[in-house]
Amino acid sequence: MTRMAGVGAAALLTLSACSSSGDSSAADPASSGSGSASAGQLSGTVTVFAAASLTESFTTLGEEFEKAHPGTKVTFNFGGSDSLAAGINSGAPADVFAAASTKTMKLVTDEGAASGEPVTFVRNQLEIATLPGNPDKIASLKDLAGPDLKVVLCDKEVPCGAATQKVLDATGLKVTPVSYEQDVKGALTKVELKEADASLVYKTDVHAAGDKVEGVEFPEAAEAVNDYPIALLKDAPNAAAAKAFIALVRSDTGRKVLSEAGFLTP
């Protein structure tokens, strides 16, 4: 963590000079007039509603942001993208929305609650999580269909389960799990606790679990890649700082922090 923060702080020095002019205009075409908002002028609180899977990386980026812009404060509301979108649509005071799928972002843009077009800033895809050392020698998606293997999958009602279903449908593979978990963390925990031999979770979850699970990449994961869009919200109470935060997320520093968390850059 400290290592990451150090790298980030250095990169930020260069970032703050170009953030508001370059990147943020792509995130929000209407922002061209406010390109003059430099680091020194930003103040107040930026409220960011972000998908739960962004918790670690966005918290790091929030700290970087506060360091680069003294006087600002970034507060996060991490949660399921669906419920965050519902919150925004019912008037929750937020500046930025970062969703885990274009579908959930669309809930907000359809209501006209976003300012400008959302941009995809990272992507996430599934990976096999298995026991440390891979004792069952799982090398491919096919191996999950093995009869003696205890596999847990996300329930098809939740996003990771929908992605799983998409991958399995595309490959025509039939995997019979011992359980359909209610969210991706549930699927991961069952492997962490060694109750299941393998599960399909996001790459970032495998990464976050550290050495408690071993990740096995499989090419079929490309069938269901999740785009993560980010958008400035129309009723943002602190639009200037919000734009700068979006710019940070999309900057090289942001990419670095996010890819270290296991995200793919678009």
């Binding site: 669906d82 847990v152 009602e157 939740v158 011992v178 359980s179 359909y180 209610q182 549930g186």
Partner: peptide
């Protein structure tokens, strides 16, 4: 139940689990 026994229709999916998962989409 969902933590210890998981969720599989007909084997461990009781009504409260079915309610919770149905709530996600329907």
């Amino acid at each position: 139940t969902i933590t210890f026994a998981g969720n599989f229709p007909g084997r461990t999916q009781t009504m409260p689990l079915a309610v919770y998962l149905a709530l996600q989409s329907d």
